[in-house]
């Protein structure tokens, strides 16, 4: 019996993978994401230099063009910045920061927003109204302005950036979760659970949540890309992560001042890395939406 039910689940999973891979672009996105994550995880082994270790930097190597050799013996594939920091190493380490901030804040916002939206829909009435007006209020603030305010008050640190992004992004999840939950609440299995006097937490998390998950997962993928962009924007504006641990956005920002003096590589290569990451995540997110959103046409 165990094998029977495992095989049906296995077959459904296989079917989903087959449908997913019918779009070559989505597969490309998935391959790129995998590569990017692997590169970020194994950054210490891949990069020729630890960009955070000031002892390894030689100021004489500053602003080397891509392809020149360093005094330590390796080649600056993507050039070096004004401190003599290898850009390839800086990008690999910067990817780590960007991914941690993106995934971490998107996941936290997902949990908070979903719990909020489901509860609002389940409780209903005036409480729901009040809760959703709070969501409206949050969504009516310009995202960057709100995030800038929070960071200006709290100061720079990775934790604070995550906090700021969660605070401006949770409302989107709340709204989506409430919408999905309202549809599901009308179905008879919820009435059945009520008449069986199952506890509220069972109805919320065992009945409603699994059935509301599809649109939320799609939103989550999109929001990871958004969170990475937002973090890059904040860092570019000088309010994101601290200078000692540069993310992609901060690298672009520090390269920006040299753009017109011909030292294009300091801003260009982190920019390309950021672009590819977000592009890949959006490709996968789009495909997931096509497959999971019942309103979007199949295939």
């Amino acid at each position: 019996m165990q094998t029977v039910m495992n095989s049906t689940k296995f077959r459904a999973g296989l079917q989903f993978i087959r449908q997913f891979s019918r779009s070559p672009l989505a597969v490309l996105g998935l391959v790129l994401i995998t590569l990017i994550v692997l590169m970020a995880v194994f950054a210490p082994y891949l990069s020729p230099q630890n960009p955070y270790d000031l002892m390894q930097l030689d100021i004489m190597d500053g602003r080397m063009a891509p392809g020149t050799g360093s005094s330590a013996g390796f080649t600056f594939l993507f050039g070096s910045d004004d401190q003599g920091r290898d850009m390839l190493s800086a990008i690999l380490y910067g990817l780590r920061i960007s991914l941690i901030v993106g995934l971490g804040s998107a996941a936290l916002a997902f949990i908070i927003g979903t719990a909020f939206g489901l509860t609002a829909a389940y409780v209903g009435g005036r409480v729901e109204n009040a809760m959703m007006r709070l969501v409206d209020l949050q969504l009516s603030f310009p995202t960057i302005l709100a995030a800038l305010l929070i960071l200006a008050l709290l100061g720079k640190s990775i934790g604070n950036v995550v906090f700021a992004i969660v605070l401006v992004e949770w409302a989107t999840y709340a709204r989506t979760a409430r919408g999905a939950a309202l549809t599901e609440l009308r179905r008879e299995y919820v009435e059945a659970a009520r008449s069986l006097r199952l506890p509220h937490r069972n109805i919320l998390f065992r009945q409603l949540l699994p059935n509301c998950l599809s649109p939320l997962v799609v939103l989550l993928t999109m929001q990871v890309a958004r969170a990475i962009t937002l973090e890059a924007t904040l860092s570019f504006l000088g309010l994101g992560v601290p200078v000692t641990e540069p993310s992609l956005g901060l690298l672009i920002s520090s390269g920006y001042e040299f753009m017109l003096s011909g030292t294009y590589w300091i801003a260009l290569f982190p920019g390309i890395a950021l672009l590819v990451t977000i592009f890949a995540i959006n490709l996968v997110g789009d495909r997931l939406r096509q497959l999971l959103d019942p309103k979007a046409a199949r295939r």
């Binding site: 008879e188 299995y189 059945a192 659970a193 008449s195 009945q207 699994p210």
Partner: peptide, 19 residues
């Protein structure tokens, strides 16, 4: 209340599809 239970009309929507 538990002693009074309901049998619903639509057998496809009255069962949680994810359980």
């Amino acid at each position: 209340r538990l002693k009074v239970q309901m049998i619903f009309q639509d057998p496809s929507s009255s069962l949680n599809p994810r359980q």
